[in-house]
Simulated assay, not measured.
Amino acid sequence: MRVLLVVVLAVATMSVASPAEAAPYCGIRWGSLQKYSSATSIGSITGVRAGRHACYDRLVIDVAGKVDGYEVQYMPKQTTSRTEFAHLQINVDAAMIDPAGHFTFGNDNNFVLTGFSKYRTFRAVRGGGLMKNAIISLDVRARLPFRMFTLDGPGGGSRLVIDVAHRW
């Protein structure tokens, strides 16, 4: 009986991880430093949309063509607002108008997305741009870890995806 008790206690203590060894929240191992690619993109923005997930909020920027050039980074906090949010700036090497001068997203060179009251991280999304670069501002509740990646498709298009974790 003593041998069995000693074995059970030994197994139990081996399976408990110390706080330093514990996995990050939801397995997220992202950081909050700048992410970029200096490649040149050929395309125009056709949509910007957001979604909620269990561990993060997601922003997707749809591009007609290949998106290769981008820069995503936290900027200094804005002091003009009464409510302070962390400000994630997304520069996309993609136009918001086509060669004929027609807007490819929205009806002018600026846009605002609304409806973030049920999001845990996102607070506001706005952006603008014309012929070459689009600048999208993503306000989040704090400087939280994020990741970004690109996806091909649908068709000949591509997507720039930015996920911001709900917490560290």
Rank of each mutant, 00 (worst) to 15 (best):
A54G: 02
G65A: 03
V92K: 13
A50K: 07
S81N: 09
V92N: 12
N91I: 05
H53E: 06
T79V: 04
R58E: 13
T104Y: 13
A94T: 05
A100Q: 15
R58W: 06
D62F: 03
N109T: 02
G115L: 08
V112P: 08
V60K: 06
N91E: 09
L59G: 02
Y70W: 01
L88A: 07
G65Y: 04
V63S: 08
D93L: 01
R49S: 12
S81W: 11
Q89P: 00
D98Q: 10
P76Y: 00
D93I: 04
S117V: 04
R49A: 03
R82N: 12
A94K: 13
N110D: 07
A95F: 11
V92L: 13
M96W: 06
R49E: 12
G106L: 03
T80C: 11
R82G: 10
T83F: 11
E71N: 15
F116S: 07
A86V: 00
N91Y: 13
K77G: 08
V60F: 00
S117F: 02
Q89H: 06
K66F: 04
A86T: 07
E84A: 08
K66D: 06
R58M: 08
N109Y: 15
T80I: 09
I90L: 15
G51E: 09
D62T: 00
F85Q: 05
H102K: 15
G65H: 05
F105W: 10
M75A: 13
R52D: 01
D108M: 14
T80A: 09
R49P: 05
V63N: 07
T83Q: 14
T114L: 10
D108N: 15
E84Y: 02
I61A: 08
F111V: 04
Q73C: 01
A95K: 12
N107F: 14
G51S: 15
H53K: 04
R82S: 07
A54M: 10
A95Q: 14
L113D: 11
G51V: 01
N110I: 08
D93S: 05
Y74W: 06
G106R: 05
D57V: 03
V60R: 07
H87I: 06
D108G: 15
A94C: 09
I97K: 14
E84T: 09
R49M: 03
I61L: 11
T83G: 02
K66C: 00
V67P: 09
G51H: 04
V63A: 02
R49Y: 05
Y74Q: 00
Q89F: 04
A50I: 06
D108L: 11
N109G: 09
R52E: 00
G106N: 04
P99D: 13
S81Q: 14
T114S: 15
E84H: 07
D108I: 01
A95M: 10
D62P: 08
N91H: 13
N107C: 07
V92I: 14
H53S: 07
